[in-house]
């Protein structure tokens, strides 16, 4: 496995990119495809930001509707990897069956596994998540679990076969940023070589930069970009923040301290 926590590269991207299962990713920005004002604006957001992975979903379709084919044609034109999700699933059975349908439709072993446990917060059901992750891994899937930053849950997910973890920053769609810095820092320290992605809850590029400064490998966004007044510019802003944050992480930041310390030399000061 690639040492994703390594500080050996010189730029926010390119030299030492994370490997998700056997695939080296091309951008630390993963973008959702929902809620954009138009398909053209969606495409522009991907183009401007350089995002290399698009999350997609499956939904009911009526006979003769053909909306799925039109959406799929548009996504293929983006020339990105797709990461299908099991969004909205509240049980292991629903999530597993949805994943199997998504694998056939999108022709990929990747699955962003969501097993929602609570309707108001959309927080994961950790028990169902581990069970579904095990079932899907045994069925040949490469599972990207949408999880919390709980260390024990994350250990169980790794035992179930997950080689990437995607803890939330905050509840989906809230834009609240990183709600548990201590927990996220602990998780990074606990799994120094495992690709970790902040999935959900980010609203601003500064929050994405912070995730990078904590040593996270990538972020997954949707609402923050799609619901911005200018989605393509916001996507670009996130991409630049990710690069800045990653550079800062690799540059080995100074330690904070409580006491002031003059940066200008004291020796030679006038009037002494």
């Amino acid at each position: 496995m690639t040492a994703t926590g390594s500080k050996s590269s010189h730029h926010g991207k390119g030299a030492d990119m994370p490997v998700f299962y056997e695939t080296e990713i091309t951008s630390r920005l993963m973008l959702g495809t929902a809620q954009y004002p138009s398909p053209a604006i969606l495409a522009d957001a991907f183009k401007r930001s350089g995002a290399g992975i698009a999350t997609v979903s499956v939904r009911r379709e009526a006979g003769g509707e053909r909306a799925g084919q039109a959406f799929w044609d548009m996504i293929r034109d983006l020339d990105v990897r797709v990461l299908p999700n099991t969004a909205g699933c509240h049980s292991v059975r629903e999530a597993v069956t949805t994943a199997q349908m998504a694998r056939e439709l999108f022709d990929t072993r990747w699955i962003k596994l969501e097993v929602i446990g609570h309707a108001d917060t959309l927080q994961p059901d950790p028990f169902g998540l581990v069970e579904a992750a095990r079932i899907l891994t045994e069925d040949g899937f490469q599972v990207f679990p949408y999880c919390t930053e709980d260390l024990v849950l994350c250990e169980r997910l790794v035992e179930a076969g997950c080689q990437v973890l995607m803890p939330w920053g905050a509840p989906i769609g809230t834009g609240l940023g990183l709600n548990n810095i201590y927990g996220l820092r602990s998780l990074r320290a606990h799994f120094p070589d495992l690709p970790l992605v902040i999935d959900a809850g980010l609203g601003l590029p500064s929050q994405a930069a912070h995730a990078m400064e904590l040593g996270y490998d990538a972020v997954l966004l949707n609402t923050a970009v799609a619901k911005a007044g200018d989605p393509a510019s916001m996507a670009d802003g996130f991409a630049r923040a990710l690069e800045a944050g990653r550079l800062a992480y690799e540059a080995d930041p100074m330690e904070p301290r409580d006491m002031a310390a003059p940066s200008t030399p004291v020796l030679g000061r006038a009037f002494t």
């Binding site: 959702g32 495809t33 929902a34 809620q35 954009y36 999350t55 997609v56 979903s57 499956v58 939904r59 009911r60 379709e61 006979g63 509707e65 909306a67 799925g68 084919q69 959406f71 799929w72 996504i75 299908p84 999700n85 969004a87 069956t97 949805t98 349908m101 056939e104 439709l105 999108f106 989906i172 949707n222 609402t223």
Partner: peptide, 24 residues
């Protein structure tokens, strides 16, 4: 898809038919 011709339908069956869609 390859198994659909062999999948017999019975009274009360619940069928889901889904297609690619936008997702986050």
């Amino acid at each position: 898809a390859a198994m659909r011709p062999e999948q017999r339908l019975n009274d009360g069956d619940r069928i889901e038919i889904v297609a690619p869609r936008q997702g986050g």
